[in-house]
Design a protein around this nucleic acid. Structure first.
Length: 391
DNA sequence: ATCCACTGTCATTTG
DNA sequence: GACAAATGACAGTGG
């Protein structure tokens, strides 16, 4: 397994940047908004999508699924200690990060325990002489979920008192005498029976049969941390892990978890369903966020292209003005040069009879309207042939 | 009552 | 082929 809290932390940090941020960095800068360097000074498009600023990074970070998940619902991580979580609602956001680290640490500790060959039998052996006449509910066939170690604090390392990895069940109750359950949907004294589970949301039942699948709203779940259907179901089947753990554990560790704990078929099925639904829930959130990002990117690109078009039109207009000015200046120059030209008799050239021509090599000649170039300009060499033509 | 945005879920596709 | 992630579609909910 080798799951390491630091490794996970770095993986989480990578996740903070991927894939949305990378997408943003790679796709957002609008090439159309980048004019030629020489025009940079006069070209201010204020392109939103090209604005890769720290704030845009912050936005990407805020959009991260894991952080978002933990930030918006820190107390939804685990089923246990709900009341404590409610009391912590106003805590500093930093606490959420600490919670994340704590959970990673918990996962690592669980790995250690599993790596070291933790088994119910070993636990039973180790603590059978503890003096506590507590039954080690080692009953794999039990519908209550198989065995559960009575003193998980000994099985798992010392700081495991928060019991974040596991649901609060009787085997813990016996030790901690903590009867504070937060069960808004049913009385703690009368735990839910499987038969009273909320109707499963299926296409065949709810989509076509108009059957309301949940006894509560989704929003209610996220806002009040009330039990979701899966949490409700997990509680009923005495699943010994929190749904957050089931969903967030790496594949390998998840499989180890299923193998190392004796769970009945119903529990295994439910755990797999919880994991699938949990993963898909996160995937759907990512998917929707991506879709919005893509949409935003396209809108930014459109506005960039509009600005670029405007800029090109202005450039075209300026070029046209410059061209007209150059033509005017050329005309003035032409008139001045032509007015200084004289024929063999020292008389000015008739503009109706002669004109100036610029050759391909840049040499300027005087040509007749009827004939080609006749006179080379002063300082320019011309062929004898042309000289001869002049006469 | 109706609309709309949001969300969880399932089925299916994609990698 | 198995698997997880991505995605479209649907339905329930609250504002």
């Amino acid at each position: 397994m080798g799951l390491n809290a630091e490794d996970n932390l770095s993986a989480f940090n990578m996740n903070l940047l991927m894939p949305d941020l990378v997408d943003t960095v790679e796709s957002s800068p609008c090439v159309h908004c980048v004019p030629h360097p020489e025009h940079l000074a006069g070209f201010d498009v204020n392109c939103h999508s090209c604005d890769i600023t720290p704030s845009s990074f912050a936005t990407s970070l805020e959009g991260n699924d894991m952080t978002q998940e933990f930030q918006t619902s820190p107390s939804s991580l685990f089923l246990v200690d709900k009341e404590e979580d409610f009391e912590d609602e106003d805590d500093h956001p930093l606490d959420d990060l600490l919670d994340d680290v704590a959970m990673l640490d918990d996962i690592r500790l669980l790995d250690l325990a599993l790596d070291e060959g933790f088994s119910p039998e070993m636990a039973d052996e180790a603590y059978s002489d503890s003096g506590l006449s507590l039954d080690f509910s080692h009953n794999s066939s039990s519908s209550l979920g198989g065995w559960y170690p009575k003193d998980v604090k000994k099985v798992f390392p010392a700081n495991y008192e928060d019991r974040k990895l596991f649901n609060d069940f009787s085997w813990q109750e016996d030790i901690d005498h903590d009867h504070t359950y937060n069960q808004p949907w049913f009385s703690a004294s009368s735990p839910p029976s499987v038969g009273k589970m909320p109707t499963k949301h299926t296409k065949s039942s709810s989509r076509h049969g108009n059957v309301r699948p949940y006894p509560y709203s989704y929003r209610q779940i996220s806002k009040t941390d009330a039990f979701s259907r899966d949490e409700w179901h997990a509680q009923a089947l005495k699943i010994p892990f929190s749904n957050e753990l089931i969903v967030n554990l790496p594949v390998e560790d998840f499989n180890d978890l299923l193998t190392n704990f004796q769970l009945n078929e119903d529990q295994l099925t439910l755990i797999r369903d919880i994991r699938r639904r949990g993963k898909n829930k996160i995937a759907a959130q990512n998917c929707r966020k991506r879709k919005l990002d893509v949409l935003q990117g396209l809108e930014d690109e459109v506005s960039c292209l509009r600005r670029h078009r405007l800029w090109l039109l202005q450039e075209k207009q300026e070029a046209r003005k410059k061209l007209q000015e150059m033509k005017r200046q050329l005309d003035v120059l032409y008139q001045e040069v032509f007015s200084r030209l004289r024929d063999e008799n020292g008389r000015p050239l008739d503009t109706t009879e002669y004109l100036l021509q610029v050759g391909s090599s840049g040499n300027i000649t005087v040509a007749s309207h009827q004939q080609d170039a006749l006179l080379p300009m002063r300082g320019q060499k011309n062929s004898k042939k042309q000289r001869g033509k002049k006469k």
